Amino acid sequence: MSQTEICEKIILGYFSVRAYVDHLKLLLEYKQIPYTFQSCQKEQLDDGSWQGGLWYQEWRHNLNLDFPNMPFYIEKYSDGSQFSMTESMAILRHLGRKYSLYGDGSIQHMAKVDMLVDVAVELRLIFVNLTYFGDVEKEKSDYFKKTGDKFSRFETFMVNHGADWVCGHRITIADFILWTVLDYNVTLYPDILDPYPNLRAVKSRMESVTQVAEYLNSERFSRFPINSPYANWGGQKK
């Protein structure tokens, strides 16, 4: 593929839930990059188990992916070639490099951005463990303790760095994954960010960006479902 070839189409594929694709859609919407979102539903089998629908039946076999998985990301070029990849965080980092969303570009700053991305992913894992396997009413207090340490450290990090965004005065890929994780948490527990004014502020700042606000109020965005249909919470349309 020549560096001069024009990317004519971007395809982003995932199940019809927010889960591990929401931050990627948010980034593309922020950059106003046209893309096609190709989604499918998980299907429940007669034995009660769940299967990936079109993904399981067709897409994983015919999309020519090196490591078939969801989400997948494909760039189609004017010469008929294409670039494709999978893995949610790898796609996020690719988009960060492609669209200059890695801060000031220094090795040290990019390392900090990557660190914050990984901490946000850890927060998402805590959310997944509760909402798939736990009781969101009985375990609320324990959940606040588990997330509170990382939320507090985000607060301190932002204070120490004088940040408009989570890693300085420039928006980075860390802001997109963090906003998604914060939104999942606020949707579950509306009061969870009350002790964290900087996190509330950076979440609101993202939502006030013109193109993001338009996206969040469009039919392209739906607050539910967040999780797969077999999760204990967040797997149904509301």
Score class of each variant (00 low, 15 high):
Met1Tyr: 12
Met1Cys: 14
Ser2Thr: 13
Ile6Glu: 13
Glu8Cys: 09
Lys9Tyr: 00
Phe15Arg: 08
Arg18Gln: 14
Arg18Ala: 02
Tyr20Ser: 10
Glu29Gly: 05
Ile33Gly: 07
Ser39Phe: 13
Cys40Lys: 03
Glu43Thr: 13
Glu43Gly: 04
Leu54Cys: 05
Gln57His: 11
Glu58Ala: 09
Leu65Met: 08
Pro68Gln: 01
Met70Lys: 02
Pro71Tyr: 07
Lys76Ala: 10
Gly80Val: 04
Gln82Leu: 13
Ser84Cys: 14
Met85Val: 08
Met85Tyr: 08
Ala90Gly: 10
Tyr99Ser: 01
Leu101His: 03
Asp104Cys: 05
Arg124Ala: 03
Phe127Trp: 15
Phe127Ser: 15
Phe127Asp: 12
Asn129Ser: 10
Thr131Trp: 09
Tyr132Thr: 04
Gly134Asp: 00
Lys138Gly: 15
Glu139Ala: 06
Tyr143Thr: 13
Phe144Ser: 12
Lys150Gly: 02
Glu155Gly: 07
Val159Lys: 15
Gly162Glu: 11
Val166Gln: 05
His169Pro: 02
Ile171Val: 15
Ile171Leu: 09
Thr172Ile: 00
Ala174Ser: 10
Ala174Pro: 00
Ile177Asn: 03
Thr180His: 11
Val181Tyr: 05
Asn185Glu: 14
Thr187Ile: 04
Thr187Cys: 11
Leu193Val: 10
Leu193Tyr: 06
Pro195Trp: 05
Pro197Trp: 05
Asn198Met: 09
Ala201Thr: 10
Ser204Cys: 10
Arg205Tyr: 03
Val212Glu: 06
Val212Tyr: 03
Glu214Thr: 12
Tyr215Asn: 03
Leu216Tyr: 11
Asn217Thr: 07
Ser218Cys: 03
Arg220Lys: 15
Ser222Tyr: 07
Arg223Tyr: 06
Phe224Gln: 09
Pro225Cys: 09
Pro229Thr: 00
Ala231Arg: 08
